[in-house]
């Protein structure tokens, strides 16, 4: 009887351990947005940035950063440590109204709930710079970030999966070898 009870307790303990271990990736997976197929915007866009880096590619990038002798590599490496994915889709157009409201709503619907919280929402009628920043929190730590920037001539969606330091991310612009992209002066790669 005693042996059965011990076995049962061990089993329950193991189950709890497995559930706890499975929870962390599950939370991280929840932070991954299902980015809609925006291929129809490719032809209309003048500049396209489509970056999709999963865990394996991030580790590879981290390896390349470790050989960066400029000293900035280590800082970026530290920042991306623990990240499970970085996904960016950015389309810049020469005319207004090239993307539809549905394109944005498909993403916005995913961040309306499900653990996401809107950190910043800027709706500027003056210059049309509309930026929404959503974060997924776990305790005091941000475990996911989503940025929806819907300007009249530009649509940008950013999804970072994993622990993100927002302050460090803001500081990255123009530092650490990352060019600060200024509006109208953006140099983006058109990925085919």
């Amino acid at each position: 009887m005693k042996r059965i009870r011990e076995g049962l307790l061990k089993g329950i303990g193991l189950l709890i351990f497995c559930l706890a271990m499975a929870e962390a990736p599950a939370m991280a997976q929840a932070a991954k947005l299902q980015l809609p197929n925006l291929d129809h915007l490719r032809d209309k866009a003048t500049e396209v940035v489509d970056v999709s880096l999963d865990g394996a590619l991030l580790r590879l990038a981290s390896k390349a950063l470790s050989s960066d002798t400029s000293g900035n590599g280590a800082k970026i490496q530290e920042m991306i440590q623990g990240l499970q994915g970085v996904y960016v889709k950015s389309y810049e157009f020469d005319k207004e109204g090239q993307y539809s409201k549905e394109d944005v709503e498909a993403i916005r619907a995913q961040v309306m709930g499900g653990g996401w919280q809107r950190v910043v929402g800027v709706l500027s009628k003056h210059d049309g710079d509309n930026v929404e920043v959503y974060a997924m929190n776990e305790g005091n730590q941000v475990t996911g970030l989503a940025i929806i920037a819907a300007d009249p001539k530009e649509l940008t969606i950013v999804n970072i999966v994993g622990p993100v330091d927002l302050e460090k991310l803001v500081e990255l612009g123009g530092k650490l070898g990352i060019p600060r992209l200024e509006k109208g002066k953006e140099k983006k790669s058109k990925k085919e």
Binding site: V49, V51, L53, L58, A61, L65, I76, M79, I80, V86, Y87, V88, S90, V131, V133, L145, I147, A149, T156, V158, I160, L166, L169, V170, E171, L172, G173, G177, I178, P179, R180, L181, E186, K188, S189
Partner: peptide, 12 residues
């Protein structure tokens, strides 16, 4: 990665 972080940082 640098490009993606650059875009994210710019929007932030």
């Amino acid at each position: 990665l640098l490009l993606a972080l650059g875009v994210a940082s710019e929007k932030m």
